[in-house]
Design a protein around this nucleic acid. Structure first.
Lengths: 373, 373
DNA sequence: CTGAAAGCGCTTACAG
DNA sequence: CTGAAAGCGCTTACAG
């Protein structure tokens, strides 16, 4: 099973290497070509493609016709070199594949494309100061704005490192804290969502709810804060949060600890991947879900509804957040684009199968501290 | 639970809107500044930053020192306008969040960043001819190369629409067929992998193996071909492939059909998400996995090992594929970059819990056609 | 409302 | 080995 079976060449039926493939492209059509075709000066063409108001309607129509005839597309590089409007955005993020990140990226891309912006990605390899500074520097180019995904330490540091004067918007985990430093941001209010999920579990009859956190972007994590608040408001004991992480693997490790504690009957997880790991640990420990332990996730990934048990989780609309983030940025760099933010969406607890009442004493479903697995 | 709790402004402690945030950036340092600092002409600076061989070593050192002192970074737009080397890549893809796509993207980004390339993404909304043509047009800019993710119809169409002369590399589902048309490509040989997975299931004692496909990029799907080949070589009957798709939801729908057929004892799935849906359908139908039915996936997503049952699946290294794809592209546009392709990796069947021998007759584990669920 | 100039920051030839 | 010219395709002022 060869993975990179063929990394070098065209298939057998392909043209030779010196074929038309290596031919230079004909020079693309420029505003001068359009100008000539429309019998105007090239400055007028520039006005038309920039929606400048003072162009006679008949002139505009002629230019537009020539543009379409010739298939003219403005050269982005020339535009930004000449000091035109910002027409590109590069996203700084420490991750591209985890659900919240990938979905946000998707929303940004959709909105950017609709606005005619090019979208770039620059990954933050680590949270080390030098690396962050370098990455921000590389991303900061004339003519391109920045979006920072500040869901984690690397992101918040990058946001702080963006020099004043660079157009930027951030998607943040929490608006508290000073990492935004006057930079505009969007967020999902998962503090309230965590509180509500906690209340839901308490309402099912659990004495308390344990929490497996995802890594926080700052000292204060809104999901953790919401969980704690939910507990406190109900007068329930506040257990120490587990050692968490982003992945199912991290959830599994936390889940093993939790499964060994008979007092644990309800677990809130920082995301659905973590919940998968917790579910696995519970199964291995012989703790049925939801009969013995309840598990609730965060995100509602596309797979969560098809797990067994189907995951009860908080649905968060990361795609919409990404769109909102771009809209915010767009309004910053283009006055005409202002106020196109979509309707705010509500986070929603999706009740499925993985949470229920705590086990009744004597049913044998309470944790024994050691399962068959 | 307000999702876009705050989409418009800075937090309370932020600077006023007219603060330093809106100040214009000071003019970035140019090659002329560097030239002045190093007491050479700016052409010499250009030679140094382009690694031109004919520069005296002492001159080069002086220029490099000035570059570092001044924090000079070349302007990408100016470079490509002036006709310099390709220094950016934009990826055309119909998806950014599904595992294979997202992981490939990650590999491309890593490799592009390491090579100093900017990376952009352009999503293909549909496979409609006009849309594809537009997307390819927009992505085709002077100074930027293209990578096409041709794992699906939209991707193969986009690849075919790339004009000759534009530097491009593709990650394809299958190198057969004419969609590549002389354009260089990389791929993962999942045909062999599918064949091997099928053989594995047959070896466990199953009479045949059913298949739930992912959508094919062309008329011929390598995974499907490998599955069929595996069956034929063993002289096993070749059932009609199920109606598949990309998602757990598609897998679930296929799984319900399959679960209703008592003759089905082994199911190979086009990817792990589909497998999750099949697993769910089997559970609902009261068909235990692997006791009653075996299920095997494709990809080995980070979550697959933590499902219950843990998923037996074919591990595919999409990140490495992405890196290889960029390396191929890089060698095309920069002679000095040639042949840096990494070691080819083997696809690997990861045996976990979801596949086993078929149920013995009379154990009650054979499908009854109607489960309790 | 429209045209002519200057210049963005670079890289190609072309000179020496 | 290094310098002076021309120009990439645009957009800003500046004129009229």
């Amino acid at each position: 099973m060869n993975v990179t079976g063929h990394t070098s060449g065209p298939p057998a039926e392909a043209a030779p290497a010196t074929g038309p493939d290596t031919a230079r492209q004909p020079r693309p059509v420029s505003i001068r070509d359009v100008a000539a075709a429309a019998s105007v000066s090239y400055q007028t063409v520039s006005r038309v493609i920039n929606n400048h108001p003072s162009v006679k309607e008949s002139t505009r129509a002629a230019v537009l016709a020539a543009i379409s005839d010739l298939g003219f597309r403005p050269n982005r590089a020339a535009r930004s070199l000449a000091g035109g409007r910002v027409n590109a955005v590069t996203v700084l993020t420490s991750d591209t594949t985890r659900y919240g990140y990938a979905a946000s990226l998707q929303g940004i891309e959709e909105a950017a494309r609709a606005a005619g912006f090019a979208m770039g990605i620059q990954v933050l390899e680590s949270a080390a100061g030098g690396q962050i500074r370098d990455a921000v520097q590389r991303a900061t180019e004339p003519g391109t704005a920045l979006i920072v995904m500040a869901y984690d330490r690397a992101g918040t540091k990058a946001l702080a490192a963006v020099p004043a004067g660079v157009p930027v918007a951030a998607a943040v985990e929490t608006p508290s804290g000073r990492q935004a430093e006057g930079k505009p941001w969007v967020w999902l209010d998962d503090r309230k969502a965590a509180q509500q999920a906690t209340q839901y579990l308490l309402g099912l009859g659990h004495q308390t709810v344990h929490y497996v956190p995802i890594p926080a972007s700052t000292g204060t994590s809104p999901r953790l804060a919401g969980w704690r608040r939910g507990l406190e408001e109900a007068g329930a004991p506040v257990p120490e949060p587990a050692v968490g992480g982003w992945t199912a693997d991290a959830g599994y490790r936390a889940g093993r600890e939790l499964a060994a504690d008979p007092a644990v009957t309800a677990v809130l997880c920082g995301n659905d991947d973590v919940a998968v790991g917790v579910l696995r640990a519970m199964a291995e420990a012989g703790r049925p879900v939801p009969g013995g332990v309840s598990v609730v996730g965060f995100d509602d990934t596309p797979v969560s509804a098809y797990l067994t048990p189907a995951l009860t989780t908080v649905r968060l609309d990361w795609v919409a957040l990404g769109r909102a983030c771009f809209a915010l940025l767009h309004s910053l760099v283009d006055p005409q684009a202002a106020a196109r933010a979509g309707t705010p969406l509500e986070a929603e607890l999706v009740v499925r199968e993985s949470a229920g009442p705590p086990p009744a004493p004597g049913t044998g479903l309470e944790g024994s501290g050691h399962g068959p697995g």
